[in-house]
Simulated scan of single mutants.
Amino acid sequence: MLNDLQLRKMAHLFALLDVDDDGVIDKMDYTASADRLVNAFGFAPGSTESQRVRAQYARLWDEVTLPMDTNGDERVDRTEFTTGFDRFVTQPEEGYLRHIAPVADAFYDLMDTDGDGRITRTEYLRMAGSAFRMSEANSLSAFERLDLDGNGSLSRQELHRANEQFFRSPDAQAPGNWLFGPLPPRT
């Protein structure tokens, strides 16, 4: 069962993924997020990079989010989303590796525009602003907390650690809690 922190993280991510702010997530929200991301990085619609990101978003929808839909309307509300992430990602030991790691790898490859194997502050800010509608200030705060070794860039390992902490950790001090910017205050 998710603790208060984990519930807040899921509510925060839900709000970021609900692109049209209609209170539910559907396949269109995932398609729109993928399109914003590939456009922000300047990839053509039919490019290999674009197809890979869209395929990972489609996989995330088909294999993780759609099965959360308990009433069969092909839309996932916040309760279904939270319960589903707990069931598919947070609780099973392999949940992160099976469902989130491939998407994180696709994001990493897309963000690493210069191919140097590291995500720079600029690359991270571009991704956070386009894919998750994060402000520049929130993106910068997130980056600083995720850069565990303080070298000014994110390694693939740092990104995976942050993702796994966001989706699985009940620890309020885990740097990965900042993956999608600051969490809203408790309500």
Rank of each mutant, 00 (worst) to 15 (best):
Asn138Leu: 05
Thr90Asp: 02
Glu63Arg: 12
Ala32Asn: 08
Phe81Ile: 09
Asn71Gln: 07
Asp73Pro: 05
Leu125Pro: 12
Tyr124Phe: 15
Phe88Arg: 13
Leu125Ala: 08
Glu94Lys: 05
Leu17Tyr: 09
Arg121Trp: 09
Glu49Ser: 14
Ser141Gly: 12
Tyr57Gly: 08
Gln91Val: 03
Leu2Asn: 12
Thr48Trp: 04
Pro67Phe: 10
Arg186Phe: 06
Gly152Tyr: 00
Thr82Glu: 01
Thr65Asn: 01
Arg121Ile: 02
Arg54Val: 00
Ala137Trp: 05
Pro45Leu: 14
Thr79Phe: 12
Thr79Leu: 01
Leu154Tyr: 00
Thr90Phe: 05
Asp73Ile: 10
Ala32Tyr: 12
Gly181Ile: 00
Glu49His: 11
Thr113Ser: 04
Arg126Lys: 12
Pro92Gly: 10
Ala104Gln: 08
Ala11Arg: 14
Met28Gln: 15
Val89Met: 01
Thr113Pro: 00
Asp22Gln: 07
Asp4Gln: 14
Ile25Arg: 03
Leu16Trp: 07
Tyr30Ser: 04
Asp26Leu: 06
Asp109Gly: 14
Gly181Met: 05
Asn163Gly: 15
Ser47Ile: 04
Asn71Leu: 11
Asn3Thr: 04
Arg59Tyr: 15
Arg126Leu: 01
Glu80Arg: 12
Asp73Thr: 11
Glu93Val: 13
Pro184Gly: 08
Leu2Trp: 14
Phe166Pro: 02
Phe85Trp: 12
Glu123Asp: 02
Glu158Lys: 11
Val76Phe: 11
Val38Asp: 03
Asp86Ile: 00
Pro170Gln: 13
Met134Tyr: 01
Ala131Pro: 05
Asp112His: 09
Ser155Ile: 00
Pro45Asn: 05
Gln6Asn: 07
Gly129Trp: 05
Arg145Trp: 10
Glu123Val: 08
Pro185Trp: 11
Arg78Thr: 03
Arg161Met: 06
Phe43Thr: 02
Ala137His: 08
Val24His: 02
Tyr96Leu: 04
Ser47Gln: 08
Arg8Ile: 03
Ala106His: 06
Phe180Lys: 02
Glu158Ser: 07
Ile100Asn: 03
Ser47Cys: 04
Gly95Phe: 04
Arg75Asn: 08
Arg133Cys: 05
Gly23His: 02
Leu125Asn: 11
